[in-house]
Amino acid sequence: MLVAYAAGELDLETAGALEGHLAGCPACRSLAAEQAAVWQALDAWEAPAISPDFNRRLYRRIQNEVRLSWWERLTRAFRPMPLRQALPLTATAGLLLMAGLILHRPNPVAPARPRAETVRAEQVETTLDDLELLRQFAPAGSAEGGRPDAM
């Protein structure tokens, strides 16, 4: 409402009510003063005058655009771009590329089961000895051990 007030767009009744409020509210008064300052500055600003041959140059340029050959139109996109325009585009393209790589990264292939490590026959023999000892430490009648047969 303050913006509309500063722009002079409020009807008399609403503007009167707002002014009544502004009289007792320093915060809104300050805002209204700032808005008024902006509007005054805009009113005081004068657009720079265009050159006398502005229209002529504009129309010539439009005509030239129309006359561009198909090759010029094709290659225009690849002409060097000013850094100010190129940088954000490059950065955005880079980010999109990175996001694409992250989101569409193919499922990582689970590492193939490592090649079975080589176990020495002596090591197996020791394990068999231990297993046999452990197997024999069992109740005589049990299914799991206590048997005299060697493993």
């Binding site: 079975a116 490590e117 080589t118 176990v119 020495r120 026959a121 002596e122 090591q123 197996v124 020791t126 394990t127 068999l128 297993l131």
Partner: peptide, 21 residues
């Protein structure tokens, strides 16, 4: 245990190891 690992070895590898004894 080592027997499980031994069982995962290929028959050729197992025989190669046993041939050392």
């Amino acid at each position: 245990n080592s027997i499980d690992r031994w069982n995962r070895m290929s028959p050729e590898e197992r025989e190669r190891e046993l041939a050392k004894l």
